[in-house]
Design a protein around this nucleic acid. Sequence first.
RNA 1: CCCGCCUUAGCUCAAUUUGGCAGAGCAUCGGACUGUAGAUCCGAGGGUUGCUGGUUCAAGUCCGGCAGGCGGGACCA
Length: 318
Amino acid sequence: MDIDNKIDIIKSGTLEIISHDELKEKLQKDSPVAYIGYEPSGKFHLGHAITVKKMIDLQKAGFRIKILLADLHAYLNGKGTLEEIKEISEYMKKCFLALGLTDETEFVLGSSFQTDENYTLKVYELALSTTLTRARRSMAQITRSKKDHKVAEVIYPIMQVIDMLFLDVDLALGGMEQRKIHMLARENLPKVGHPAPVIIHTPLLHGTDGSEKMSSSIENFIAIDDSPEDIKKKIKNSYCPAGEIEGNPVIEIAKYFIYDTHDTLFIERPLKFGGNIELNYDELLEAYGNGKLHPLDLKNAVTAHLIKILEPVREYLK
RNA sequence: CCCGCCUUAGCUCAAUUUGGCAGAGCAUCGGACUGUAGAUCCGAGGGUUGCUGGUUCAAGUCCGGCAGGCGGGACCA
């Protein structure tokens, strides 16, 4: 696989790469490190899976993968006691492997290094040059509480930046909600003696209720190990206005979880509504957009395929 | 450390004045309507009234203590 080929694969399905040139340089390096961090909390859902799939692409392109199980970050974000969070970390680790990351993947528990003296001193150093406003702004889409803001909230992004120093990352991946923290990292890592990492952002999946972001704190997600019955129920109940593509979670699931590995989607449909059809992604958008494909038929097809696609994941996690 | 205000359903808040069956909106769930969901109608569930002690026939309501939140004051040699 040549470099341009790798870049095409890495680029597909992402919202932005900062920057392409730097990515190219990293790909010429000997086993560059790609990192992503997750707060172990709640269920592992399709929103998480989008980023994991991209990490798999990076792994195939020759990156060494480091997954940060950010237990202290989850703690700082009020997700529970350290014990509870540690328990979920174990479950999460299995989820990554179930989704297809190889066992060469390196899992790092945040608390295993985030209390080291050198780490702490770096956090203080960065704290000194980061304004409160900026730290808080970077957390706008991440923080759990919208009021009664705690100091923890501004320690969080600073630690995340220093994580990248200690994990020696060449590339950081995240959903679009991570953008402001990543920019903070790009700007500040050089000041603490580490080159700015390449940043890749993946899109956020809308919640099944149509809200901005799929999230385990609201019941608007499909977990990667949901039973077929749950998947049916959740997709059936999903927000899915006829003719509307933008922000339609069912279309998004088709796009990111079916069309990424299939050229076409086979849609079973009663004869009186036009009979079965098979559509590629462009045709699907066309047919759905002009009302020729009914939401229920779309839902049924997506449900059937998603159940099949997640079957090995369910089996692995059993 | 001191003073004041606040804490009631998952959320936002009524009910405190004058002690007398703890309510509404939103959210959730169910039904109707659409060949999906949503919207809209109709209906249902939902409570240790922050915790604790007391007064009273009776306390969300009055009194004491504690915890948490908000605001102010004081301290700053």
